[in-house]
């Protein structure tokens, strides 16, 4: 089969296309960070997950060590049950605590893990017992206003006592 210039050009075209897809995957996308080999799955129950979404990062000491795999509502305990996929390379203590944080003031939400002192390690399928819910802005504001109000009230009463 003799080769023609058309073959050459089509070859260049296909190679460019492959390069573009690779470039998108590696340079633009997060394929390098999200697809890190084998993972193990643990669960954690939160009272309130705020705006946490599937695929949100799981970080420890600021390093991404896993991703949120799924979120379901547990109708028995009225809690949110979050499944987390963690990188096999990173092992955590059984006493690890999970909290939901917000990146910056209005950024996306992520789960932060802080390890405990128990020697035993988390296994696949384990449940993280210590959890701290997301901070809900409205709750925080109303609490702040309430405190402020009671502060003024108490200072009023103290003034009256004088």
């Amino acid at each position: 089969m003799e080769r023609t210039t058309i073959d050459l050009w089509v070859g260049v075209f296909l190679a460019l296309g492959l390069a573009a897809i690779f470039g998108l995957a590696l340079k633009v996308g997060n394929l390098t960070s999200s697809n890190v080999g084998e993972t193990y799955t643990v669960t954690a129950a939160f009272e309130n997950i705020g705006g946490l979404k599937p695929h949100a990062p799981v970080k420890s000491a600021g390093v991404v060590i896993g991703r949120v795999d799924g979120i379901v509502f547990d109708s028995k305990d009225y809690e949110a049950k979050v499944t987390i996929k963690l990188d096999k390379r990173y092992q955590f203590s059984k006493e690890t605590s999970a909290s939901i944080f917000t990146a910056g003031l209005l950024g996306e939400q992520y789960i932060g893990l802080e390890t405990g002192y128990d020697e035993e390690k988390l296994q696949s399928g384990d449940k993280i017992k210590h959890t701290q819910s997301a901070v809900v802005l409205e709750k925080m504001i109303s609490q702040f206003l309430y405190n402020k109000a009671s502060d003024t009230k108490s200072s009023d009463t103290s003034k009256a006592a004088e």
Partner: peptide
């Protein structure tokens, strides 16, 4: 420029869906 991009563009949700 690149790191912010990589943190927000998901391979499956964004790139594969675009393709």
């Amino acid at each position: 420029f690149w790191s912010q991009m990589q943190a927000s563009v998901d391979f499956r949700d964004d790139i594969v869906n675009g393709v």
